[in-house]
Design a protein around this nucleic acid. Structure first.
Length: 510
RNA sequence: GGCCCCAUCGUCUAACGGCUAGGACACAGGAUUCUCAUUCCUGUAACCGGGGUUCAAUUCCCCGUGGGGCCA
């Protein structure tokens, strides 16, 4: 039988990292077994569900590379299991609701909030578990009908069989719950508004889901769902795997309370999808060996639920940063150049031809970008040269604007004291910059290459005895920064004219 | 409060009765170096506690303790 797993995001907010990890585990498990991965949108909560959040979920799953075989916007084959939005399945749920009602496995409950509170208080005061008393269960169908036609507000409750339910969890072995401790649960607000524990059972059955892989926070819902499934006489065999939770620094479940953990936010900050996938999969799963860098493809081959942990895992940003930096270093610079364009644009450093003002129009095709401040046209190759200098320094793409802004500005702003190497006086600095200028001026246009620049400057620097006395002021004059890429490569990318101009500007500051 | 789950360095984890308890991130030191980063060395750092079982327990069992989740 074909393995079928699903991820069931509810579009009431952005897809977050916890959802993404659950989706990843589900995806990897099904793909490893040659099965199908399904996206089902759980949008029964009409007030809080919004199309934009569905879009957010689908876009991010796609961005992470977790391509689904069936889902609301795409279906591989005939799509006989759709629709994939719960809001489009109310007719289906209604049938099953009617069936349960007719067979008295469910009933209308007319208890008011006040009455329920009172019942609860009573049980608590006697030291018992607060749960629904079952008061409305005895109502005959005509009584129920009468109450309803009287317009009394009501919900539909499912009769919980007070048995011990034991199920096998792939990760936790046997788990059991004594359902005698649970009252009858609400499965629908009305015929058109079924609730989670009910819809999930129907959808998993009808969509022929074989493995439910979800967060541990759902483990206590499982016995309820099993009871509903039995009441509906569903035949599908479902295996459960409750994966450990993603935790924040304070070791509680990662949530909005801990800040924005949406996938979109990480994407916008410049985390790479392969880094996020690699990072998330190692939270709760380990491959057995000491290898820790994995592509999605490798993960499909190696993933196994047997090696999933039971305890929750803290979401450790430093480790994500390290993995992300690693993947950034693997990219070729052309690719990276394209990836940093949005950040440079966002920061107002760069614009793209044809997108804005008409003064861009005369710029050549080979120079599709324009430096905002100077109006100069630049090529992708130029951006590749820039990003190459910072490739090994980037933890995330967004950092490029802070690190390499000096390539995109007319005037550098920095304190003149920064030019001083080991407390050197102004006259010494001016002289040092003068020597750099002299050396660099002597280079012909064709010689303006990093290697040649380095060779010539190093010669001069060695003569000075202390390299820093020459190189530090030079580097600061070009970048305006305490920390940056080296002066040779910066000069090479900057070009002769700008390099010399910046050295002069530095001297004038002193 | 009830039920359920969990427990190895700060963090992610390896170990499936016998090892100086391994790796990675982070941190500290060093090498390279004008700075930062990369890279390469080195170091600090963990078996929650108590009982069993066993020749031998991080590992198996029980009880605590601690943490978490769900329901209310």
């Amino acid at each position: 039988m074909k393995i079928r797993t699903r991820i069931a995001p509810s579009p009431t907010g952005p897809l977050h990292m916890g959802n993404a990890r659950t989706a990843l585990f589900s995806y990897l498990f099904s793909k490893k077994e040659g099965g199908d991965f399904i996206v089902r949108v759980e949008d029964t909560d009409k007030e809080r569900s919004e199309p934009k959040w569905e879009r957010d979920a689908l876009e991010n799953l796609e961005w992470l590379g977790l391509n689904w075989d069936e889902g609301p916007t795409f279906t591989k084959d005939r799509g006989s299991f759709g629709p994939y939005r719960q809001s489009e399945r109310t007719g289906i749920y209604k049938e099953y609701l009617e069936k349960l009602l007719k067979e008295k496995r469910a009933y209308w409950c007319f208890c008011t909030t006040e009455e329920l509170d009172a019942q609860r208080q009573d049980l608590v005061s006697r030291g018992e578990t607060p749960r629904y008393s079952g008061r409305c269960r005895g109502l005959s169908i005509p009584e129920q009908e009468k109450n309803r036609s009287d317009g009394k507000s009501a919900v539909i409750r499912f009769v919980i069989d007070p048995r011990k339910i034991t199920f096998k969890d792939i990760i936790r072995e046997e788990v059991s719950f004594d359902m005698a401790l649970s009252g009858d649960i609400v499965i629908a607000k009305n015929m058109e508004t079924p609730l989670y524990n009910f819809t999930v059972v129907i959808d998993d059955e009808l969509m022929q889901i074989t493995h439910v892989i979800r967060g541990e926070d759902h483990i206590s819902n499982t016995p309820k769902q099993i009871l509903i499934k039995e009441a509906l006489l569903f035949k599908g065999k479902i295996q459960y795997a409750h994966i450990p939770l993603l935790l924040a620094e304070d070791r509680t479940k990662l949530s909005k309370r801990h800040g924005d953990n949406s996938v979109t936010k990480f994407r916008e900050e410049g985390y790479l999808p392969e880094a996020i996938v690699n990072f998330l999969v190692l939270l709760g799963w380990n491959p057995g060996g000491e290898k820790e860098i994995f592509t999605l493809k490798e993960l499909i081959a190696e993933f196994s639920l047997d090696r999933v942990h039971k305890g929750g895992a803290v979401f450790n940003l430093q480790r994500l940063d390290w993995i992300n930096g690693f993947y950034i270093r693997q990219k070729n610079t052309k690719e990276l150049a394209e990836m940093i364009v949005p950040y440079l644009k966002e920061a107002g450093l760069l614009s793209q031809n044809g997108e804005e003002k008409e003064f861009h129009l005369h710029i050549q095709k080979s120079q599709p970008y324009t430096i905002q401040e100077t109006g100069e046209g630049v090529s992708l190759d130029f951006l590749a040269d820039v990003v190459a200098l910072y490739q090994e320094r980037l933890k995330k793409l967004s950092e490029i604007t802070q690190l390499a802004d000096f390539f995109f500005t007319k005037e550098l702003e920095y304190e003149k004291e920064l030019l001083s190497w080991k407390g050197a006086e102004n006259t010494a600095i001016i002289a040092s910059l003068g020597r750099s200028q002299e050396v660099l001026s002597s280079l012909k246009e064709g010689e303006w290459k990093k290697e040649k620049i380095e060779e010539m400057l190093l010669l001069e620097a060695e003569a000075a005895g202390d390299r820093g006395s020459l190189l530090w002021p030079l580097r600061v004059s070009l970048t305006g920064k305490k920390a940056s890429a080296g002066p040779f490569e910066v000069a090479a990318v900057l070009g002769k004219e700008k390099t010399l101009a910046r050295i002069t500007q530095a001297q004038e500051k002193l």
